[in-house]
Amino acid sequence: MTTTSNVAAPPATPVPQHRSAARRRTPASMAGAAVKYTLVLLFLIIVLMPAYVLVVTSFKSGSEIGVSGQWDLPERWTTESWAKAWSALRPSFLRTIELAVPVALISSLLGAANGFVLSRWRFPGADVVFTLILFGMFIPYQAVMIPLRDIVTTIGLPPGIPTLIFVHSVYGIPICTLIFRNYYATTVPEDIVEASRVDGAGLLRTFRSVILPVSIPGFVVTIIWQFTSAWNDFLFAIFLSNTRNGPITIALNALAGAQSPDYAAAMAGALITSLPTLVVYILLGRWFIGGLMAGSVKS
Rank of each mutant, 00 (worst) to 15 (best):
A83I: 12
Q70T: 12
R197W: 01
I248G: 03
M267I: 08
P74I: 02
V198S: 06
L284W: 02
V129I: 15
R205I: 06
R19F: 13
A251D: 06
Y171H: 07
Y263D: 02
A31M: 10
T163A: 09
V55I: 14
T57P: 05
N232L: 08
I250F: 02
R205E: 13
T243F: 10
W287Q: 14
D72C: 08
K84L: 10
A22C: 09
I250T: 03
T13W: 10
W82Q: 01
Q70K: 13
P124A: 13
I97P: 02
G218I: 00
S68N: 14
F138V: 04
A256F: 04
A12L: 15
G62L: 09
I238Y: 02
R286Q: 09
I173D: 01
P213D: 08
A51M: 14
A195D: 14
A9P: 12
V220I: 04
M1G: 10
P74S: 04
L134F: 14
D262Q: 07
K60Y: 05
P247V: 05
T2Q: 13
W82H: 05
S68E: 13
S299G: 15
S260D: 14
S68L: 13
S169Y: 04
L252F: 07
P74D: 05
M49L: 15
I250V: 11
L255N: 00
L240S: 04
W225F: 12
M49R: 11
W231E: 02
Y171N: 03
I155F: 04
S92L: 04
L255H: 01
F166R: 07
L240P: 03
A294K: 01
A230H: 03
A264E: 05
L157A: 13
G66H: 11
S229Y: 07
L39W: 11
P16I: 05
A8K: 13
V297Q: 08
P102F: 08
S108N: 01
L42V: 12
V152M: 15
P10Y: 09
A85L: 05
L94G: 11
R24M: 02
L99P: 03
M30H: 11
A88Q: 04
L271R: 00
L278N: 06
V40E: 11
R24T: 10
S169C: 09
A21Y: 14
P159S: 15
S63L: 11
V117T: 08
T273F: 02
A201I: 01
Y281V: 04
A34L: 10
E80L: 09
L178Y: 08
D191G: 08
I224T: 00
V56T: 03
V101T: 01
V117S: 00
L204D: 09
T273A: 10
T163P: 06
D150I: 11
A270G: 00
I65E: 00
V15F: 11
L255M: 08
L132T: 10
G66F: 08
T4K: 15
P261E: 12
T38D: 09
F288C: 05
K84Q: 12
A195E: 12
N245A: 09
R197I: 07
F93V: 02
S61A: 12
S108P: 02
L204V: 12
V7H: 13
M145F: 14
L73G: 00
A237F: 02
F234M: 06
P162Y: 06
P10H: 12
P276A: 03
T131R: 13
V152G: 06
F59V: 05
S63P: 06
V35P: 07
I161N: 00
A31V: 11
P74F: 05
W71I: 10
A294I: 00
Q259E: 15
L42I: 10
F180C: 01
T26R: 09
H18Q: 15
